[in-house]
C-alpha cells in the first residue's frame, strides 16, 4: 500500500516511456519506489542515475555501502529501506549479527577500521548534521577526498529515498517482518 497509484509503462505518455526505458537501462527495472516516483518521470530518471552511479561506479566497496545505507535507513526510521537493503547486504555477505546491530544503532562486532570509520561518519552526519574534525580526518585517511564525497552523497541520497518512502507511506509487503525496532 502507498498513497499514490503505482505506475507501469503503459500508464505513461511518450516522454514518460522514454524516462521509463532509461530507468530500466540504468537499474534493471522500474518497480518498487520507482513505480511511484514515475509520477514525475523526469525526477525518477535523475534519482535512478544517481543510484546507478553509486551501485556501479562508486569507489566504495559494496558491503561498506550497504552498511552505510542500513545506518541511514535506521536513522530515518525507514522500515522499507532497511529491509530492502538488509536483503542486499546479506546477499553481499554482511552477517546477520551486523545487520541486527545496525538495526539497533549499535556498533557491530568485527568491522574493519574502514567500515567503522564510514559508519561513524554516517551516524554523526545524520544525528548531528555536521562532522567533527576527528571523524572527518579518519574518513579522509581511509577514503580520500573522492571517497568522502561519495560517502556523503550516498548518505544524502538514501536519506532522500527514505523521505520519499515516508511521504508516500510505502509499507512493507504483507507478511514481511520489520527489522527496525518499532516505536523508538
Amino acid at each position: 500500500m502507498a498513497r499514490l497509484d503505482r505506475l507501469a509503462r503503459e500508464d505513461l505518455d511518450d516522454a514518460g516511456c522514454e524516462s521509463f526505458d532509461r530507468i530500466v537501462g540504468l537499474r534493471g527495472g522500474a518497480g518498487g519506489l520507482y513505480s511511484l516516483l514515475l509520477h514525475s518521470p523526469g525526477l525518477a530518471e535523475l534519482m535512478a542515475a544517481t543510484e546507478a552511479y553509486v551501485r556501479f561506479e562508486s569507489r566504495l566497496a559494496l558491503t561498506l555501502r550497504e552498511m552505510v545505507i542500513l545506518a541511514t535507513a535506521r536513522e530515518v526510521g525507514s522500515q522499507y529501506e532497511f529491509q530492502a537493503h538488509a536483503r542486499l547486504a546479506r546477499q553481499a555477505g554482511v552477517r546477520d549479527d551486523t545487520i541486527r546491530s545496525l538495526a539497533l544503532g549499535e556498533d557491530p562486532a568485527g568491522l574493519s577500521d574502514e567500515e567503522m570509520a564510514a559508519l561513524l561518519y554516517a551516524r554523526e552526519l545524520l544525528q548531528k548534521g555536521s562532522i567533527s574534525d576527528p571523524t572527518f580526518k579518519a574518513a579522509l585517511q581511509h577514503f580520500e577526498p573522492r571517497g568522502v564525497v561519495e560517502l556523503s552523497v550516498i548518505i544524502g541520497h538514501y536519506k532522500m529515498i527514505a523521505l520519499f518512502l515516508a511521504s508516500l507511506d510505502v509499507e512493507l509487503a504483507p507478511g514481511a517482518v520489520p527489522e527496525l525496532p518499532l516505536a523508538r
Partner: peptide, 9 residues
C-alpha cells in the same frame, strides 16, 4: 537536504 549535508560535512 543532500546539498546542505555536503556543505556541512
Amino acid at each position: 537536504l543532500l546539498v546542505g549535508q555536503v556543505l556541512a560535512a
